[in-house]
Design a protein around this nucleic acid. Structure first.
Lengths: 209, 209
DNA sequence: CGTCAAATTGACAAGGCTCAAGTGCCGTGG
DNA sequence: CCACGGCACTTGAGCCTTGTCAATTTGACG
């Protein structure tokens, strides 16, 4: 296992690449994304410290998407071979990892719903709610303690919207009192209000377990 | 293990439900979907005979989405407890199932991209390509042998479009020669042409393995 | 033959995109 | 210390893809 310090924007895994290590995010934030033929980028998940970044490479050798850090970050890389050995020796660990990959899938399903069926404002609010809820679960403090680390372009790429429209919707959410702080200092102003705008119910995160 | 014959539209699993059995689709077609607060339905995957319908319930006890058959179908149900025992006794089977759930997740990621970044025509074409490719992999014959089993409403629910617009786009794809057969008898007319309209590359299905 | 679900088509409305210009912040270098 | 450059944010105007509403047709089945 080796750890690596990465600068904001650095790439961890590239689509099509043969992968022999699984990354774990130690500090900083990351995202996974795919690129459409026209160059449009779609972010499929955000990650907070402690998250496993690409556990699927334990059993799928070629990457089907890109992993990138969105802030300066530290990432630990564990060789797939070592991980397989670990799982073989400790079945309970295997179950935990397997369960984690199922949680991942659950989040993806919610994203399909989010991007497919909700309007711009709700969509953005929902994405932010999920991020904040996951950060909190990772021990980074409550909703009001956190500063959202992504740019409006990231938010657009995650929600299938243009940065311009993201900006307009963020303004609306700010005017409604759900968010506060402009520019790169976005914060939750009223968690309950934001959740309501987002139609957010965290059940799909299966955190209670 | 018990098997059950289900009529088109019957529900297999409902969101929020505590699940103690995993379903396997023996014959017929199925889909998984979630519902937004405004009642809008988002289909997150389609399934062909042989697919595992809800393997995530092996490790997550409450369902975060609905499973429904879209044609008359036969479904086998395996108790979670038995499945866990099997996995414990036969680690290789566990790996196979785990890998399957990772494939599932890969498909979800592609759907996020599809719904988030592609225009209506491409989106529909892509969804159809995936379905046909998976059917072929399941041994149901080549692209030109298959009749697409879903209604235009299903297609709309899967792509985040209205049935009306799906209809318009299907007409266009038909006029371009990619599809043939109107109404409930939709078929692929020109696989290459359809793939091109869809910007389809099946890598994410990880079928080669 | 009647009924019902699904498909089809047209006219119009609207949410989100594009294009374009301008602002604020921050790090860098003179 | 200040000027500069770059990046992200902000805002406005007009357009286009897709949604909405509504009427009609088609096909399957009892």
């Amino acid at each position: 296992m080796r750890t690596q310090r990465l600068k904001a924007g650095a790439s961890v895994v590239t689509e099509g690449q043969l992968v022999s290590e699984c990354g774990v995010l130690i500090s900083g934030y990351a995202c996974r994304h795919k690129v459409a033929k026209d160059g449009g980028r779609q972010i499929v998940s955000f990650h907070v410290p402690g998250d496993l970044l690409d556990m699927q490479h334990l059993w799928l050798e070629t990457a089907d998407h890109n992993v990138q850090v969105i802030t300066d970050a530290n990432v630990a890389f564990v060789p797939v071979t070592a991980l397989r050995q670990l799982v073989e020796d400790h079945p309970a660990l295997g179950v935990a990892l397997w369960r984690d990959s199922l949680l991942d899938a659950s989040v993806f399903r919610e994203w399909v719903l989010n991007v497919g069926r909700r309007d711009a404002k709700t969509r953005i609010a929902h994405m932010l709610c999920e991020f904040v809820a996951r950060s909190e679960a990772a021990g980074l403090g409550g909703p009001s303690d956190q500063v959202i680390p992504m740019t409006q372009e990231h938010i657009g790429d995650a929600t299938g919207l243009t940065p311009v429209h993201v900006n307009r919707m963020l303004r609306t959410l700010r005017e409604e009192g759900a968010l506060k702080g402009s520019g790169r200092d976005l914060q939750v102003a009223d968690w309950k209000c934001l959740k309501q705008s987002a139609e957010f119910r965290g059940d799909y995160l299966h955190l209670a377990a």
